[in-house]
Amino acid sequence: GVFIDGRTVTLSPYSIGKYEVTQELFEVVMGENPSKFQGDAYPPADGETQELRPVETISWYHAIVFCNRLSILMGLEECYKIIQANGDEVDYENIVLSAITQDCSGWQSISCDFTKNGYRLPTEAEWEFAARGGKQDVDDWNYTYAGSNDIDKVAWYYKANSNNISHEVGLLTANRFGLYDMSGNLREWCWDWYDSSIKADTPATGPETGSSHVERGGSWFDNASALSVLKKYPNTSSSSFNYLGFRLARTIK
């Protein structure tokens, strides 16, 4: 967890997505759907809608560019600035996923302006605060999973109910904030660099440097023990897996 004794975390007002970003939304914004869980080989479970399954097999870099492109489409301020090896800024409106995958290793810097009103990834602290339901003086703050101690109410997970595939967002029980799938379905990218042990002086936006970014929430692929609201995992920014997606956040001005 990020809320440890001795650490003061100040969160500015923000909003966070009710659902993980769907395949439909990702394809509308980016022009393509890279998800493994689609087509005849991986159809949705009975009664579920393919387009409403969460997008996966995307890297942290893909998610960052998606956020800026969605902000542009919605007339909002872009939060991210990505400088390429040649010193130019990325062309968020036109770059395609394959070019992101090819070029991202040469990107020189990526910064986030949290004062902008556009779409972005949640910080790890924002993610955990939302997953826990936001009220430290009530029982659900300390629930094992987001919204319940009963994992089957809130989460798709391995060797239980996932059937080894992703599921349409929002079908299980929401937490206090009305957020779905914060435990299970897909792990979710956060903005922060990964640090296995958060310290009292770690900034609210995470460590200043690192080699991997944070995933939170557990997935269809994970056993129950991995779905705790306190669990975190590292992955390199260019990694993409069929158990890993994201949800959106925005700073509220």
Rank of each mutant, 00 (worst) to 15 (best):
D195I: 13
S197Y: 11
P207V: 02
H167V: 03
A174S: 15
G206K: 00
T209C: 12
T202P: 04
S197E: 15
L171P: 01
D192P: 05
G170Q: 08
G206H: 02
T209G: 07
I165L: 12
K199N: 09
G170M: 09
N185E: 06
L172R: 00
P203Y: 07
P207N: 06
S212W: 08
H167G: 04
T202S: 08
G210M: 05
S211K: 14
L171Y: 07
G210I: 03
F177N: 12
S197M: 12
W189R: 00
W191Q: 04
E208G: 13
T209F: 14
S197G: 08
T205D: 15
R176P: 08
Y194F: 14
S211T: 15
W191C: 02
L172K: 00
L186Q: 05
S183A: 12
S212Y: 11
F177D: 09
W193F: 10
E188F: 07
H167R: 06
C190P: 04
I165W: 06
Y180C: 04
R176E: 14
L171E: 08
S197C: 12
S166W: 00
T209N: 15
S166A: 15
H167P: 03
E188A: 14
A174F: 07
L179C: 09
A204R: 09
T209L: 13
C190D: 01
R176K: 15
E208Q: 13
A200F: 10
W191G: 02
E168P: 01
R187Q: 14
H167T: 03
R187V: 05
W191H: 04
H167F: 01
S212L: 09
I165G: 10
S183W: 00
A204N: 11
W189A: 02
T205Q: 12
D181T: 05
W189H: 04
W191I: 02
L186H: 02
D195P: 04
P207A: 07
S196P: 09
Y180K: 00
Y194W: 07
A200L: 11
T205I: 12
S211C: 12
N185Q: 10
D195N: 14
R187Y: 08
P203T: 09
G210Q: 03
P203Q: 10
P203R: 09
T173V: 12
G178T: 11
E208K: 14
S196K: 13
N175R: 02
A174Y: 05
C190T: 11
N175W: 02
E188M: 15
